[in-house]
Structure formats: C-alpha cells, structure tokens
Design a protein around this nucleic acid. Structure first.
Length: 882
RNA sequence: GGGCAUUUAGCUCAGUUGGUUAGAGCGCUACAUUCACAUUGUAGAAGUCAGAGGUUCAAGUCCUCUAAUGCCCACCA
C-alpha cells in the first residue's frame, strides 16, 4: 500500500477526482437544520461574461476557506453561488460576436437580439462556474442563481414598484453621464474620473453694442460653445460690473446671449467669466434652471453634433472641437491656449470619455434609504475588516447622490413602466403607469394604447437584492438570512456593498451581513492592476495546471496581509507547490513507518501527558498552540497569519524537528501514536486551505473512510498546551545546535557507537542520529538538572561534550581550528557582557522599577539571569579551549 | 482640492493591543545525495525598521511634521 505512493505529489490526478466525489455526494449542499447554526456567504456574483482571473481566485479562495472551516466547525454552511447578467458588459460581448456576421443589434431588433444573448449565455455563461469548480469552491451548486432568472426578475420588479409607490423612484430630466459609444446613461459610480492633460481655451465673445469689445471666457470643451445660452460672472467682480445684463454675440452661430451674474462663479479661475451651456454641463444646468435660460442640445446621443450646431452638424464632438478652434482663430477670437490638467468621467466599460448629457431618466432617491444603512455601520451592526473602509463607506453614504437606474440598452430587466398614449397626448408627462405586469388598459382613461418603457435597469439594481432574492422559499430565507460574511474587493464598496445594506434594511428590515471583509487588489510585480488590456495577467488556470490548485490557494492566501494589495509574480506559487510536496512526503514517511494496527484504536487516551517523552509533549503542545492561533486568525480574517503559522508548524517544527528527532525510535508506541495523531489533525486543519491534497492523503490513512471535507475540526486541548514544555524544547534545540556547530567544525568519525545508536557513514543519517542522540542527552540533562560541559583536549585534539556528574560522553574526535573557534566564542562573550550591562542598568533604573508592570520586571530579571548563565557557559567553553 | 494606503534584509513582503536578541519566502555563501522529500536538509552572511522631532522605564509599533510612491473620491468652467 505504501509502495504505491509516489515521491512527488501530482495535483492533476487528484483534484478532479475529489471535486467530482464531493459534488456527487452532495457534500456542498446545505438545508435549514434547526439543530445547527447557519453560516452563510453569498458569492459576489461574477459576470456571466467573466473569465477567472486572480482577483476571483483570491476572493473565492477566502470564501471557500471560511465556508470549509465553518462547515468543519459544525455549522450548516451555505455558500450561495450565481452569476450576474452584467447588462452593458454582456451586451457588448454579444454585439461583438454578431458583428462578425456583419450584424448590429438594430439589424436584429430587440427580441431577436435578446434571444441571441440568451443563446450566448447558454453556451458560454457557465465558463466561470466551471472555473470556480477548478478552484475547489464548495458552493451549493444546486442553488445556482442568475440575476435574470424568472423568480429573481420578479423580485426586481417588485422592488421597483414598491419603491415607486413609496415615492422613492422618480423620473426626470437631468444632466447625466452619457457614454456616446454605449449610448446609454451611466450612474456616477460607473463613470470614474481620470486625469487628463488637456488645454484651457480662451474664447472671445464680442459685445453686441460694440463688436470691437470682447468678453473672454475659458473652457476645456470649446465645442460646447455652440450650445451656450449665457455668459456668467460673479456679481462681486468689479471687472465685469458694468457688463452684466449686456448682450453678447455668440461667434460662429451668431446667437444673442446675455451676460448674467451668479455668485457660484469663481472669480479666480480663468477670466472670471464663464460660458453657460445648460444642456451640456451639470453646473450650467443648475444655472440655467435658476436664470431661466434656454437649453440647447447640440449633440446626438452618439456624440455627433446635431442640427443645432449649424455648420458643424454631422461632425464628431472631437473633430468639431478642432474645426471650431480653427474657425475662431481665423476670426481672431481665440485669445490663447493654456495647458490644463483636468479630470473627466470615463465609461467604466469602454473607457470612452463621458459626455454630460441632458436626458430624461429614472432615479432612486437615496437619502431615505441611506439612513438606516448609515446607522448600522456607525453602531457596529456591520463591521468592516480592515476597519479603515468604514470611513470610506460612511463618507460616501453621507454625501450620497440620487441613483440613475435607467439604461438605454436592451439586455437587462426592462423597467416595469408603461405609458398610455392617450393620456400622453394631453400632457407628455402624464400617462405613466408603474405595475408588476403590463396593464390591459389605462387605469386613468381606459385606453388600451399602452406601451412599455424601452429602458432597462442598471445591473446593480438587481444585484443589490442578492443576499435575499437568491432564496426561493421563506423558511430558507428565515434560516440563512442575514448572511454572515461578505468577502469582496474595494472597487465595489459603493456599487454593491453599500447598496446591499440599503436594500437589506428597506426590504428585510435587517442588515444583509455582519462582517464585510475587503481584500486587496491583485496587482502585477510592478504594482499595476492586472488587466487583459495591459497583458500582465497571470492566469490562475495556468497556475493550477502547472502547480496545482492547492499551491495556488495556499500561495495566494499566505501573501495576502489583511486588505493589502497583492503584488504577484509567478515564482510565488513555487512556495505553495513545495509546501504541498512537503505535506505529501511527510505523510508518505509516516505511512511507511506506521504500524497501522496501533492506531486502529485511539490509544492516545492511555498516554497520560506525564508519561510522554519531552519531545512528544513538546510537539503536542506546539500543535495545539498552532491550532489556537489558526482559529484566532481566521476569526479575525487574518488569513495570511493563519496560513503562515500552519506552514511554520508543519514544516519547520513537525517535519524538521519532531520527525527527525523520533526517527531513531520511530517504532515506539508513544511516537507512533503522537506522530499519527498530529498528522491526521494537521491534515484537518490544513483542509480549508488545501482541500485536495488533504482529502487525498486522508484516505490513505488507516481508519478514515469518511471524507475529510465533512470531518470535524480538531478541538483545542488546552491542558496539553504547555508553554513551559515549549520553552524547554527551545533549550533542547539550543543544545542540539551547539552540538551541530561542533559537528560542523569537526570531522565526525564514521563508526562510533553511543547510547545504542549507530553513527553511520555520512550524510543525512549522521544528522539524524546526532539529533536524536542530543535530544536524549538533553532530556536526561534536563530531568536531572545537569549541566552540559564541552571539553577540548589539546593533546589528542579531541572534543567532548560531557554531562556533568553523569557518565555519558559524546566523543567528537577531530581537529579544530582552535583560534577561529576562540574568536567566535570571544565575540559571543563580549556581546553577552554588553547585554548584561545594559540590562543591569535598566534594572537599577528607579523609573523602570516603579512604573513597569511587575511581570515585565520579572521577565527582565529572568532575561538577565539567562544572559549571565550564558556568559558563564561561554567562559567555561573558552577556558576549556586553553 | 479632500481622503486612504505604503516606505522594515539584495528582491517580495509579515510584524494584532508599545515589552525577550525585528521575522518569513526567494536569492546569495558553504557543506551534505543509497536513507520520506533536491519541489530536500544543515549552517551562515545580510537590517540606521524612509527622514526629523516628541510621548514613555521601554517605540518598527503611539503623536507631530517632512519626503517619496500608489490608490480612491470631487461639478473650477
């Protein structure tokens, strides 16, 4: 059985096998169970168009660790999966795909196009789900949801209608963010500002009364001058005092515009006179309303100038900019051009520069919704990890703007808004019907001439319902809601997290989750965000292929300090791979040396702590301390700490020290049982981090027929944790190191016999024997409170380690460079003496004695004693060398 | 303009509420391959904790300022 365990772990063979096993046996599924406490996570639904990237890998690994951990802790752990229909993104993808057939969505028409999107979704929409499975995600796939599912869509409609009836949804004409390429409105969050190096153009507008006199205005978007309907100055501005109320002639268009006074005008900026374009700028829009100006829209929705632009109609907005500047220059109306930093909104999907555009859209009134969401976080009902995001959240909530939710695209939830043609004839603002299903006739006039609004809802208008709309029946909702933890990236705190909180309170009267863990952004080695367009992507699937899923997961987690951005390079994953291999080989070694019959029954109970050897007590204590650390770190979302302490324990303590020490006596019953127990418990603790390798090894151990995935998490046995014995092993290690140092400096003869152990020829065995030997000697020394003395016999060149008053000697014959050795010892003595002096100073300091806590003083005293002892020891060694 | 983060070994980064001699991985140096693992082991070198000031018996850790870098938010045309 042991012979068939290969020397190296090969992930490929095991991963798919175990994932299928877990899935086939429905081990991921969760149902309401009154006997258990629920633990719920809803996945941040990836876009259906999504392809797994490192951000997902990190996000989903964290969630999977939490879910697997809680499941092993005995909770009814539900990880709810699903995908988001991602309106604009998906529409773009499908438009691109039909473009290959030479078609546009307009060619197909709305219904046909939507059919194509669904067809696309059927074919490719599950890609991301398959990839999540490769990651080992233990989602309850039987519950997979899609934001365009029939039932989910019903919830979206229901919510719209309820908010409308409550007066929280309204329609109005405002300046919104318009993407001329996607030809849709965008919310503020969807139009992030980016800095641009642009220019400030100074344009001269002649006065009507005196064409030789001008008012100069500064603008960054000269093409909008075609829509100017006023020029504004600050009423306090002396320069323009006499001009207020006068008429200017708008160049190129020759329209008469008035000079108005408005105190929002900044006198310092530009010339202090500002052109007012109410249809193309949010500030100007406000000014236009206030001063009753004309709203002249000079642009088509696609960014091409329209008939109001006179000679420039038909030109693209940026083309027109150049031509207009040329024409103004020709007429000597372009005073100057200055370089100017500005920031402009960009479409988050296609990066086109946003055009502030006047149009009729639907909005959600946010202030009333924000109130409970604000309080919940202030009171701590919802906590952010790391805490600093709390302020970011609160700041946004406090300055919240109304949410533009209508989008002029086809793919998405169509607004449940209908219009009565008849009523609209009387007044275009009338005849609005908001209803869950299309009404037969107008409730006002009874006309059957009813049509539905063409617009669809912002994608986030469906995803903000995710924590509850994903549950199909009330019992389940009651059991699993509110969810426990939300794990997500900082980018979507505003888009998603904040809105979910608002929806939770509005529709469920309860916060949707307790903890929000915000992890960092995954960046490349240079700190750039990983993105396809930059070509700096490290593909998680490639890593899985090369190093294995467990390696990917472990490496990602161990470098993710709480909420810090992750700078990633491929070499990172070698650490995870090597660790997996280490676990594999340690298990292999133990299995090779295990008397399976011994562990069939839990003999551990027969071993009282007192009867176990020092080394066994030490490793048990270390295991339970580590377990405690892992639990604490997981509770505090310090995943890297948890992973690192596991790594250090398993590799550097369990493998490097414990297994090496017991090697010589591996068949003894206590050693057998302790090494086995620690291995199998370690596998369980490692399982949430590295699910596949632990499952594979688990089934190679005797007595483990049930999957590790549903095994129980080891209990901390406080009585075994013994800091004292942990400190003792440090001493052991110290002695062993001392002996090792000697070994290195000496050439150890190959065939000495001592304490019943053979010192073999060379290499590893030598190390093992020496270590085992030393540990035994040290144990003896400790139990008998003996000193270890080193002696050097000049005549024979022999170097011996002697346990004082005991008849045990380690003869280490050989030649040593005595001068070099002496130098080293002297340096150490000097250092120890310096330390002693500074410690003594400290301990005689009255301030210190009066103010430091007693335990600290004690500690320091102990430290001083240790130092003195060490100095004494070293002196002894030095004397021995003479 | 406002806010946040980062600055610790050659490189990439940990370091929880101040308290042993500041840690890890990679890299580097030396040695070790019949022996669970060379995806290994042992040992070693390597740090003015960005800079300046302050609080404290005690500062990588707390406070103030400065510098560099990165990110987020914001309607100066």
């Amino acid at each position: 059985m042991i012979d068939d365990i290969p020397k190296q772990y090969s992930p490929k063979e095991t991963e798919d096998k175990w994932y299928k096993f877990w899935e086939d046996n429905k081990l991921f599924s969760a149902k309401p169970n009154p006997a258990k406490k629920p633990y719920t996570i809803v996945i941040p639904p990836p876009n259906v168009t999504g392809i797994l990237h490192m951000g997902h890998a990190l996000n989903d690994t964290i969630q999977d660790i939490l879910i697997r951990y809680q499941r092993m802790q005995g909770k009814e752990a539900l990880w709810m999966p699903g995908t988001d229909h991602a309106g604009i993104a998906t529409q773009n993808v499908v438009e691109k795909s039909i473009a290959k057939e030479g078609l546009t969505r307009q060619d197909l028409g709305r219904d046909k196009f939507i059919e194509r999107v669904w067809a696309w979704k059927e074919q490719y929409g599950s890609t991301i789900i398959r990839q999540l499975k490769k990651l080992g995600a233990s989602c309850d796939w039987s519950r997979e949801r899609f934001t365009m599912d029939e039932e989910y869509s019903k919830a979206v409609v229901e919510v719209f209608v309820r908010l409308y009836e409550k007066g929280l949804i309204y329609r109005g004409s405002y300046i919104i963010n318009w993407c001329p390429r996607c030809q849709t409105a965008l919310s503020d969050e969807e139009a992030p500002h980016k800095d641009l190096q642009g220019s400030l153009y100074y344009l001269k507008y002649p006065l009507k009364d005196n064409p030789n006199e001008f008012v100069t205005v500064a603008t960054t978007r000269p093409e909008t001058m075609l829509g100017d309907t006023a020029v504004a100055v600050n009423p306090k501005d002396k320069r323009y005092k006499n001009l207020v109320g006068k008429i200017l002639i708008l160049p190129l268009i020759n329209r008469e515009i008035k000079i108005i006074a408005d105190n929002t005008v900044d006198m310092e900026f530009g010339t202090g006179a500002v052109k007012v374009t109410p249809a193309h700028d949010p500030n100007d829009y406000a000014m236009g309303k206030k001063h009753n100006l004309e709203f002249i829209n000079v642009m088509h929705p696609n960014g091409v100038l329209n008939q109001s632009a006179g000679d420039y109609s038909g030109m693209d907005r940026f083309e027109a900019r150049e031509v207009i500047l040329e024409d103004l220059k020709e007429r000597k109306l372009l005073e100057k051009i200055e370089p100017h930093h500005l920031s402009a909104g960009h479409c988050y999907r296609c990066h086109t520069i946003i055009e502030p555009y006047l149009s009729k859209q639907w909005f959600v009134k946010m202030k009333p919704l924000a109130k409970p969401a604000l309080e919940a976080v202030k009171k701590g009902t919802i906590k952010f990890y790391p805490n600093r995001w709390t302020r970011v959240y609160l700041n946004w909530m406090e300055n919240i703007q109304d949410w533009c939710i209508s989008r002029q695209i086809w793919w998405g939830h169509r607004l449940p808004v209908y219009y009565c043609l008849n009523c609209q004839k009387k007044n275009p603002e009338d005849g609005v019907i908001v209803a869950k299903i299309k009404p037969e006739k107008c409730p006002e006039c009874g006309s059957a001439g009813i049509y539905q609004d063409e617009d669809v809802l912002d994608t986030w208008f469906s995803s903000w319902l995710w924590p509850f709309a994903t549950f199909k029946n009330k019992d389940e909702l009651k059991y699993f809601y509110p969810t426990s933890t939300l794990v997500t990236a900082p980018e979507i705190i505003f888009f998603w997290v904040a809105r979910m909180v608002m929806a939770g309170f509005e529709f469920m009267q309860e916060a949707p989750f307790k903890d929000v863990y915000i992890h960092g952004t995954v960046r490349d080695v240079e700190g750039k965000k990983m993105s396809k367009s930059l070509g700096n992507i490290i593909d998680p699937l490639e890593i899985i292929n090369e190093y294995g899923t467990d390696a990917l997961r472990f490496s990602l987690i161990s470098i993710t300090a709480q909420g810090q951005d992750v700078f990633l390079s491929k070499e990172r994953f070698e650490q995870g791979r090597n660790f997996a291999n280490k676990i594999w080989n340690a298990s292999r070694f133990i299995l090779m040396n295990l008397e399976a019959s011994l562990v069939k029954t839990d003999l551990c109970v027969f071993f009282k702590k007192e009867n176990l050897s020092l080394v066994n007590r030490w490793i048990l204590s270390r295991f339970y301390s580590t377990l405690k650390e892992v639990e604490e770190n997981l509770e505090n979302y310090q995943f890297n700490e948890a992973a690192n302490s596991l790594y250090a324990f398993f590799w550097h303590e369990f493998c490097d020290w414990y297994l090496e020490i017991i090697k010589s006596d591996i068949r003894s019953m206590p050693n057998q049982i302790v090494m086995y127990k620690i291995l199998e418990k370690s596998l369980r603790v490692l399982h949430p981090f590295m699910p596949f390798i632990t499952e594979e090894l688990w089934h190679k151990l005797p007595n483990n027929d049930n999957p590790i995935m549903i095994s129980t998490w080891p209990h901390i046995q406080e009585n075994i944790i013994d800091p004292k014995s942990e400190r003792t092993i440090e001493e052991v290690i110290e002695i062993i190191s001392a002996i090792r140092n000697m070994r290195l400096e000496l050439d150890i003869p190959p065939q000495e016999e001592n304490v019943g152990v053979k010192i073999a020829a060379s290499g590893k065995t030598k190390r093992v024997v020496l270590e085992s030997l030393s540990s035994q000697i040290k144990s003896l020394a400790r139990l008998n409170k003996l000193e270890v003395l080193n002696e050097y016999k000049k005549a024979s060149g022999e170097f011996t380690s002697v346990l004082k008053d005991m008849h045990i000697t380690i003869p280490l014959a050989g030649v040593i460079d005595i001068e070099k050795h002496k130098e080293k010892i002297e340096a150490r003595i000097k250092k120890a003496q310096n330390d002693i002096v500074s410690k003594e100073n400290m301990l005689s300091d009255k301030n210190f004695l009066n103010r430091a806590p007693a335990e600290i003083v004690e500690k320091e005293k102990e430290k001083l004693n240790n130092l003195k002892e060490e100095a004494k020891k070293l002196k002894g060694v030095k004397d021995g060398l003479r």
